[in-house]
Design a protein around this nucleic acid. Structure first.
Lengths: 206, 206
DNA sequence: ACCTGAACACCGTTCAAGT
DNA sequence: ACCTGAACACCGTTCAAGT
């Protein structure tokens, strides 16, 4: 069903590669709002050529995402016959965390970043942080949390359950409860293992 | 330092409220690309009035985020003197997950959603999913994972560590390791507690 | 078959004119 | 002091004309 099309003409194939490279670079540098005009200029082609290869700006983004997924799939498949499956899974998660969507993640976070320096937002955010720190300290003092988990840790993790379940929000609106429970289990004292990195002092930059 | 300004004129104060309500509704319905013109029309004011109250579209978004944070802070503070601190923390996380950024989350996820139906992306994504399922099944069979964790669970959780650590990417580039370890601890057999929701059959809609 | 750039529709932002 | 809408600059997308 998909792309049984015969090979592109030589110049077209070359332009497609130039465009993908230029778009990745431009999006990484300029964010998701990088203009098609800039991408075309960087690739050394006319604006119209961009739309001949990618019907819309979204299609261009999709092509870049595909490249990332392709790389992840190869990594995972290469680990299928490892000696220690537990270590293999952990290694996959490690590698995927390193390379995963790097440019794309930036695009997505742009809206949050945009409001990061707003004084109003900062003020209320700090207030909420402090309250969460207090809740965390009390929970730990009563033995409900492992000793090495801090307030900033909880702040950094608090968005994870909904974020993780977001793609299925419509078909399974309560799924976030499962991941909240799962992540919370990781914060309990039972079976805790030493953490590889010190806790952040503040969950926001500077 | 912030807003020691004297109260707005009556009509201006009213317009500000109308604009905030209209913007929240419009962004929720139309996504982050909802136009200022539509917001102004919905609020029943001229386009210029939007920019008199919010210097830029980003400022308008920041005002909406502030409202959400304000509500979260109040919830947290109200739980500070609860009898069971462990239960109080969990309840805060529960409530915050429910109300948290609902509209904003949608804006952020829009880029991922946009590529969701692309056939190329879908194809490679399913390939990667299957590989992760296999890695997960092997890890569980060898006793490295709790019995109730499935392949789709791991897929849904795999983006969490980097997502969670993203705000501090510059000042602490390796912080994601801490949260990967923390979340992975939650997937281990030791100290596992029953999960409140069945695992999804597929990490993507339909 | 593919490339090009002028042309179009749309959107964020500004500002002179109003009350 | 605040509101308004015409005007401007910019951007995604289209398409007639080229090779």
């Amino acid at each position: 069903m998909t792309t049984p099309t015969r090979p592109l003409r030589a110049d077209a194939a070359r332009n497609r590669e130039l465009l993908l490279a230029a778009a990745t670079a431009e999006f990484t540098e300029q964010g998701i709002d990088a203009s098609i005009a800039d991408i075309a200029r960087r690739a050394g082609v006319g604006k119209g050529t961009v739309f001949r290869h990618f019907a819309t700006k979204e299609h261009l983004l999709a092509a870049i995402v595909s490249q990332q997924l392709e790389s992840l799939a190869t990594t995972a498949e290469g680990l299928l016959d490892a000696d220690d499956p537990g270590a293999a899974l952990l290694e996959f998660l490690t590698i995927s965390s390193e390379q995963q969507w790097e440019p794309i993640q930036d695009f997505l976070q742009s809206a949050i970043r945009a409001t990061l320096e707003d004084p109003q937002v900062s003020l209320v955010r700090e207030r909420m942080f402090q309250a969460v720190y207090d809740l965390t300290d009390r929970a730990r003092a009563h033995g409900h949390l492992r000793a090495d988990v801090t307030g900033p840790d909880v702040v950094m993790l608090m968005c994870a359950p909904t974020h993780v379940a977001a793609p299925l929000r419509e078909s399974a609106p309560d799924l976030w409860r499962r991941y909240l429970a799962l992540i919370f289990d990781g914060l309990r004292p039972e079976g805790a293992r030493p953490l590889p990195h010190p806790a952040p002092s503040n969950p926001m930059p500077t």
